[in-house]
């Protein structure tokens, strides 16, 4: 079976099947690029991901492994549909997978899923952060994410006004 070696920023190498790796848009492109540039069709591709450390890469691969037989989600899904599906499709496994993570790890996973183009994982991790935001007041959001307001003068009032001038449909 064709394998690919994926190396994290801190040098840990993961040997995974190409079939699994190709569920990541980024790895798929990399593998195809390697194929084109390599004379030996049997050669094993090696892909270095300089932005993702081993722990995070492991989690991404673990998630891919679990979801290897899911239908691939189209990247530009209709938003309304996308939201509904994400909600409907979130499995118990995903919930257990995310449950022990602290917010920092979730953030890194979002970056990794974004970089590796793994739509499903990006959805569930963003969904998790989203759940910290939905229904909250501005102050509650600031507290939850340790952010401070840096608006000066009437700038904050201005953003509030702009919100009122806009409607969704």
């Amino acid at each position: 079976m064709a394998l690919v070696r994926v190396i994290s920023s801190d040098g840990a190498a993961f040997l995974v099947s190409q079939r699994l790796a190709k569920r990541s848009g980024k790895l798929k492109t990399e593998i195809e690029t390697f194929r084109k540039s390599s004379d030996n069709s049997e050669a094993q591709p090696e892909i270095r991901i300089v932005t993702i450390r081993a722990e995070i890469l492991r989690l991404v691969l673990q998630w891919l492994q679990q979801h290897q037989n899911d239908p691939v989600l189209p990247a530009n899904q209709n938003e309304q549909d996308g939201r509904g599906d994400a909600e409907m499709g979130q499995s118990q496994w995903d919930r257990d997978f995310l449950a022990p993570m602290d917010l920092g790890i979730v953030m890194e996973l979002i970056l990794a899923a974004n970089h590796l183009e793994v739509k499903g994982l990006l959805d569930i991790t963003c969904k998790l952060v989203e759940s910290k935001i939905t229904g909250r007041t501005v102050d509650e959001i600031r507290t939850a994410f340790k952010l401070k307001s840096d608006f000066k003068g009437n700038e904050e009032e201005q953003t509030r006004l702009e919100n009122r001038w806009c409607v969704e449909n």
Partner: peptide, 24 residues
């Protein structure tokens, strides 16, 4: 910005309105 961009794409608009007031 990558994280925020992704999250803001998913949020219901009413929550996005709150997010806009958090910081610059």
């Amino acid at each position: 910005s990558v994280i925020l961009g992704n999250i803001f794409e998913m949020l219901p608009i009413s929550d996005l309105a709150s997010c806009r007031q958090v910081c610059k």
